[in-house]
């Protein structure tokens, strides 16, 4: 139970970062953190039903659930791809408006248009 509470806490910290941080790089940090939290949740919970890695060789006991592991491989990679694209956009925003501050960027965008 403690593990679940800690993972939820991690998720909420990341989410608060996305919503509350003004620096867009920190918002991207938050996105990475909530992604990690969900991946951790899948793996931690999926590992409760077995006691050996899902690789079948000789006589092994019950393996952990391999399905969440395979799904999380995909989710991790997709998360990093989105992060990279977000960073490229953040780079462009910095070059155009000279700041990582989301309010400052908003202000400049709306002043110009």
């Amino acid at each position: 139970m403690l593990e679940r509470i800690l993972i939820l806490l991690l998720f909420l910290i990341g989410f608060a970062g996305i919503v509350g941080m003004r620096n867009i790089i920190k918002k991207i940090f938050g996105l990475t953190i909530i992604n990690s939290a969900v991946v951790l949740l899948f793996i931690v919970e999926g590992s409760r039903i077995g006691n050996s890695a899902p690789i079948i060789d000789a006589e092994i006991g019950l393996v952990v659930d391999p399905v969440p592991q395979a799904l999380m491989l995909t989710a991790i990679v997709i998360g990093v791809c989105v992060t990279a694209l977000a960073l490229a956009l953040a780079f462009r925003l910095y070059k155009a408006y000279g700041s990582f501050d989301i309010d400052e960027i908003h202000r400049q965008v709306h002043r110009e248009s």
Partner: peptide, 11 residues
Amino acid sequence: PWPLSARDYLQ
């Protein structure tokens, strides 16, 4: 409880 169906099938 975590579902066992997929794990059992795959094992």
